[in-house]
């Protein structure tokens, strides 16, 4: 079901992305879609209002029509979200936003990296890590940094399917494996 949802989300994302590229504002459309997805994830009331079958479609549409101008002023995004509501695909909004972001990144030659460290990294350190990852991938890198004390020390960077692990935790696991074998 998740695979099928992802496939459907990519199709919707590609459709909107095509419109955005043609209009020359795919970045703006992506930003608005991302903000809508964030609102969807953070607002239980919004999800309840749009997912609950108790509310009539007209009522759901009225709710969206009140919110959309504030969050997504672009008419393309507004029509797109209302289309999702009419086709009962509104629950795919976060997945569509992710797919749209991936399409945008691929279009502009950009990758996103998740950097996990044992302690909070300074902006300068993050910048160094970003540059090293750009040098490694040959693409512009956008870093999402998180902290995991379980790493003990070092950094783990995940870029797409590539994982670069420089953590003390992993080295200790390697040590354990060598001792056992």
């Amino acid at each position: 079901m998740a695979v099928m949802g992802g496939s459907v989300a990519r199709r919707y994302a590609r459709a909107l992305f095509g419109i955005g590229v043609d209009a020359g504002k795919f970045e703006a459309l992506g930003d608005e879609l991302g903000e809508l997805a964030t609102l969807w994830n953070e607002s239980d009331e919004l999800r309840q209002a749009l997912e609950n079958p108790v509310f009539k479609p007209a009522e759901k549409r009225a709710v969206l029509e009140r919110i959309l101008p504030q969050v997504a002023p672009t008419p393309e995004v507004q029509r797109f979200v209302l289309l999702l509501l009419d086709r009962r695909r509104i629950v795919l909004l976060p997945a569509i936003a992710r797919a749209y972001r991936d399409l945008t990144d691929a279009h502009v030659g950009r990758v996103r990296a998740e950097v996990i460290s044992a302690e909070m990294l300074t902006p300068a350190t993050l910048d160094r890590v970003r540059r090293s990852l750009e040098q490694r991938t040959g693409k512009k890198v956008i870093i999402n940094s998180t902290v995991n004390p379980e790493l003990i020390g070092g950094v783990v960077a995940r870029v797409g399917d590539l994982v670069l692990d420089g953590s003390v935790r992993t080295q200790l696991e390697d040590l354990r494996a060598r001792l056992v074998n």
Partner: peptide
């Protein structure tokens, strides 16, 4: 300092 050294090593190795 050790954390910084680990990050430096990571950055150097990644690059």
């Amino acid at each position: 300092q050790d954390q910084a050294r680990l990050v430096d090593t990571f950055v150097g190795d990644v690059a």
